[in-house]
Structures are given as structure tokens and as C-alpha cells.
Write a protein that binds this DNA or RNA. Structure first.
Lengths: 199, 199, 199, 199
DNA sequence: GATGAATGAGTTTTCATTCAT
DNA sequence: CATGAATGAAAACTCATTCAT
């Protein structure tokens, strides 16, 4: 059965190659710059081969997005469901998100910009994937914040994630696309956040 | 010379018509949904005519972005250069930015999305436009924040705009693309901001 | 307005060129052999141009089929609604149908071949066009045969067209695709038909 | 030598499996709906294996057509070479043909539409197969009709099969693809035929 | 100046056939 | 022998840009 096993392995590897090539392209060029031609060229495979592994472009992309987004979901879930003080856990969340998006800038770019528009008609599935991701994160966050005494917050619990998300996004944006040299300091961000929202 | 003058006027009007049509399309469909065909149709002009007034699609779009971004720049400049207390001015900034992006959601979507990449090769100019905008805002903001006693801030002056931008972005994103019903309350945002960054 | 008129005329001519090229291809290669590339090449136009005149391949083909089928419908209608003895009119029908299909062999080939099958999924409109044609012919024929005294027919009135269609089809098939030299003699066919179905 | 024999037998069985799968597909989807992928899947064999047993798609299909057409040839030959009165034999022919095509609608659809054209370049062999079939039928028919006294026919002997083929085709077409409910009554068809062609 | 028809390179997808294992 | 992964040519369709009138 070793032949079969080898085949299986090779198949998985080939999938990986396609996925890697696509991710690389996504990181370099953003979602609008990805074509099946470019993927095939980068993966050093024929265009036809891509369709052996993925039903169509949309499925390829949405699988990749889903896969990559799940990595962040898993990490955040682990933190948010673990024991610990508010400050410690929030700092971990900040650090995790920043590390993740440092590694996956293209997702950072795409993620809050995937809107149902005629331009994305041909990517309904991808849009759905991102939408599911956001809802998932929202649910996790809501549950997380509700673990703590509501009375200590200066603003409504639901707004907490809006504020933290905004702060992290601000620093990441400054870091990646801004002019000034900035360091991503989760302690600092946590301090601003906590002073802003805690009584 | 009145013929010449009329010509000039008509020329300017024609430009305006093209620009209006494009802006309308941008608001409706986002940047990816804009084609020269659609612009021509909406402007009730021929496609060829567009190329008499604008060298190519990119120049048309980048001029429009620049024009529209300048509206925000002007408003912010007026506020930031006017007399007034820190809290009053910052609240005005928050309110202005939120009003502006509520009116121009397509710009909000595009603005931090425009990156130098081969995918945007055909949009280098637009990217440059947005980049210029960001620098301009940064300069204005830096100058503005330096008007106030550095000692009162809990963080480096340069970071202030990063924090405020993030907060505003967070609330706008939640409002436009989020699940939860949220109101854009500039007072609330100011309070979070000031508690977070003021000693 | 002469420029505009000329434009209109040229546009109509170009449409004609596309249609002629397509019809020629259809006659040469049958419907399965027609591709947009071949049409463009034959019409000495670019592929893109075809899409200025016809929304897509299906629309182009179904318009052509409809146009050409209507020619036969009109001819038959004229005959079937005109005054005259049974024998005279039926002979005219036979002659007309044979002349028409001699000129339009590809339609003869396609016409009873257009079936709702997965292979023709991408041609639903064409199939519909042919289906409409058949129904139209059937209605006309039924009405025509009912004009005559039912008592003189040896078989049910509804079957008359089945028999005549079969006879004509048989001779046409023999002529076009058969081995033996055969002449399309409408008198002979009428005699066989009338002997077969008249008391 | 029993190994060799077993091999031979297995080989023959494998061929059978491929053929059955293809025939099933042909009946379900028509010739245009048959792909090597689908055949391989239905036969539960690999695509490569198909090419061990058949040089290419065309050869596979033409062999299948030939095989299936021979079934009809054999049946007709048996009838046409048997003793019997004209009416009895012709009725048997009619019934046989109708039964056969009721069972093999895909062949009925394809058979008189396979023409030598560039569209069928990749099917030259299939076309040849069908052509051979037609010639074979023609020869048999001619021989059959010549057994009877030429004087009793109202038309040339060679035309008899043209007429009968047309009549049968007309009724089958009406039955399979027409609007009206029709029954395939070989007696009726024979009566129309005989009245039409016999003195 | 204005027009709008024409272009052609680019996009996604399918499928008969080949070939290393 | 059998496999099935890989190929690549071909298909339909889009859209920024050009150019004769």
C-alpha cells in the first residue's frame, strides 16, 4: 500500500503547492491581482491541473481564506476561553492579532473591505467566508467580555470590541502603510484601551 | 473672445458631468465596479470623449479621488487651524470625519486598501493620490497636536492620531459593515479617546 | 443627418456580415462546429466586435435560427391560407419545403435534433426557438387540414402532417445523404401521399 | 495456458464494461454529453485504462455504434431473408425498426445527422460507421423489394425504402419529440405505405 | 472637438490525450 | 497491465484604449 500512500502524500503536497503559490500571490498582489494563470505559473503547474484540485477559482480562494482565518479564530478562542485576569488576556489578544496580521497583511487588507457589491458577485463564497469569520469573532468577543463585571466598564460591553479592534487596526495601519516608524507594543495599546474603557 | 469663453465654460461643464457620473458610480458600486463604458453611459457621452478630458481611466479616477479627499482635508484644516480648546476641536474633527465618510463610503472602503502592488499597477497614480492624502493629514495632525502641552498626554504626540484614527475607523466599520446597531456618537468617542490618551 | 444615416446603414451591414459568416459556417460545419473565433475570422472582425452586435453566442445563433425559420413559416402560411384545391396546395407545400431545405441543409440537420438534453444546456434559447417553430408549423398544418372534409381521409386528420413530413424527410434525406441519385419530385410525393391517406 | 485464457477473458470483460458504461451514457445524455471522464467514472476504471482498450474516444464510440447498429441489421436481415408474404414481412420490418429505436433513442437522434464536416472531424470514423450502416440497409432493402413483382408497385423499386423510412421516421419523431400523443401502430403505417406505393 | 465602432489581450473553465509510476 | 495526475489547446466572454469619420 505504500504506492497509494505516496500518491496521497503527493496529492496533498501538490495541493499545498497550489495553496502556497496562491497565498504568496495574495500577499504580493492582493486578491484583485490573483488570476488562475498567475497561480499556475507560480506553482509551476498547468492551468488545467488547478482544476483537478479545486472546483473553480472561487472555491480555491475561499478555502484558502477559510483556512487562514481559522488559524486566527483558533488562537483567539484558546486565549478567550482560558483562565486569567482581564489585563493579561486582553494583552494576549492584542499581541496575537498583531502577530497574525503582520504575517498575513493581505488578509488585513481584504478583511474589512469584502462587501456585497457587484464587483464581488463572482466571489459570493469568499465574501460569505469573511462574513462568517467576523460573526464568529464577534460572538467570541461578546462572550469573553461578558465574563467580566459589567460595572467596571465605562462603555457598553458590546462596544468594547469595537474600541479594541479600532485601536489595533490603527496601529497596524500606521505600521504597515504609514510614514512614521512605530512599534507594535501590546502593552501600550492595552494601557490606552484600559484607560479609555475602564472606570 | 466670447466664443472662446463659452468653449472654455462648456469644457469645464463637460468635465464636471464626467466627474459627477463617476462619483455616483463609485458610491453605488465601489471602485471595482466602475468601467469606462458605465461612466460614458451615465454621463451621456461617448466613450471616446472621456479620453479627451482624461488621459486614461487611472487619471480620471485619481483626479476624482484627489478632489474628494481635498474636501476632507480642507474641512480638517479649517478646524485644526482654528482657535479653541482641545476637547472642542477634537470633537469637531471626529464629527467631521464621521460625517464625511458616511457620505463617501466608497472612499472609506478604498482608502486604506490602496497599496503599491502589481495588482494596482494600473492604479499607481491613485495610490499616490491616497498616499499624498495620508501624508497631508499626518502633517496637519502632527502640527495640531503639537499646539497643546505635550505634558498632558499619556503617549507620544505622534501616536495620538493613530489612536484617534483607529477609534473612528472602528466605529465607522461597525456602523457600516457590522452586525450590531451602533450610533456614531462623537462625544462618546472623544471621551474614550481623551481618557485613553490624556493624563 | 446623412452621417447618422450612413452609420445606421453600416451598422446594419456589419450585422449582416456577422450573420452571413455565421450562416455560412452553419451550412459548412453544422451548429457544433461554430465558435465565436471562427465567426470572427470568417467575418474578418475581432471577437470583441461580435459582442457589440450580439449579447452572446446563444443570442446570435437563436436570432439567426429564428430569422431563417420564419422565412419558411411565412411561405407555408401564405400557401396554407390561400384558396385552392387540396392537391394543388399540398403540392406547393411539398415543393416549398423541399426548396427551403435544399437551400438550408444545416437547418434540416439541426431541426429535429434540437432536444432538451444536458448537451444543449448552453443553448436553451435555440432549443426554444426550434420548439416554437415546430409548434407553429403544427398549428398551421392542423388548421389547414381541417379546412377539408374529414370524411375523405383514410386516417385521423392529426396524423396527416406526420405522414407528409415523414415522406418529405425521407426523400430529402435520400437526396442529401443517400447513395442513390434521386430527384425531388413534388408530384410523385403528392401522389404517394394522397394515395396513402385519401380514401 | 489457463493464465493466458483467463487474461483473455478478463480483457474481454473489461471491454464489455467500458462499452456498457458508454452505451448507458449515450442513452442518458446523447452523444454530445459523453466524455471520457464520465465513461471512466461509470465503468469504475481509470481514464488511462480506456486508452488501453480503445485507441481514442472516436474509436470507442464508432465501435459501439457499429455493434449496436449491427443488432438492427441482423434483425432486419433475418426478416428480409425469410419466407413470407409482402405485407407480413413489411409489417415485421416496421415493428422491428420502431421497437429498436424506441430502445435506442440516442441512435435515432444521431443516425441521420452524422455528416462529413469539419465539426465532425473528430468523428470521421463514426460517420463512416453510420454511412456503412446506411449502405448495408439499402442493399438489403433493394434485394428484398426486388423479390417481389415489380409490376405491382406504383413507384420505382429503389424508392420504396425511401418512402417506408420516411413514414417510420415521421411517426417516431412525432412520438418521441412531438406534442401530440400518438401510438406507434405498425398496421396503420403499413396500410398507409401499401396504399401509397402499391397499385 | 466629438463620436462610437473596433480592437485584442486577458479572464475562467473544460476535456481528450499522454505518461511516469 | 492499470493507474490517475498532468497537460494544453480551445472555448466564451470583458473591457481599457484607439482611431477613422
Amino acid at each position: 500500500m505504500s504506492t497509494k500512500e505516496r500518491r496521497e502524500r503527493e496529492k496533498r503536497q501538490r495541493r499545498e503547492i497550489i495553496i502556497s503559490a496562491t497565498v504568496e500571490l495574495l500577499k504580493q498582489e492582493g486578491i484583485a491581482g490573483v488570476s488562475m494563470d498567475k497561480i499556475a505559473e507560480k506553482a509551476e503547474l498547468s492551468k488545467g491541473t488547478l482544476y483537478l484540485y479545486f472546483k473553480n477559482k472561487e472555491q480555491l480562494l475561499s478555502e484558502i481564506f477559510w483556512m487562514r482565518l481559522n488559524i486566527l479564530i483558533d488562537k483567539l478562542q484558546t486565549i478567550m476561553e482560558s483562565e486569567g485576569e482581564f489585563d493579561e488576556l486582553v494583552k494576549q489578544v492584542i499581541q496575537t492579532v498583531m502577530d497574525y496580521f503582520t504575517e498575513n497583511v493581505d488578509i488585513f487588507r481584504f478583511i474589512y473591505h469584502s462587501l456585497p457589491s457587484s464587483a464581488y458577485d463572482f466571489m459570493k463564497q469568499i465574501h460569505q467566508t469573511v462574513e462568517d469569520f467576523k460573526i464568529r469573532i464577534q460572538e467570541m468577543s461578546n462572550k469573553f467580555y461578558r465574563r467580566f463585571d459589567e460595572g467596571q466598564f465605562y462603555i457598553k460591553t458590546e462596544y468594547l470590541q469595537t474600541v479594541l479592534r479600532g485601536l489595533i487596526w490603527g496601529f497596524l495601519t500606521e505600521k504597515f502603510f504609514g510614514q512614521s516608524e512605530i512599534e507594535l507594543d501590546s502593552d501600550l495599546i492595552y494601557r490606552i484601551f484600559s484607560r479609555g474603557v475602564l472606570k
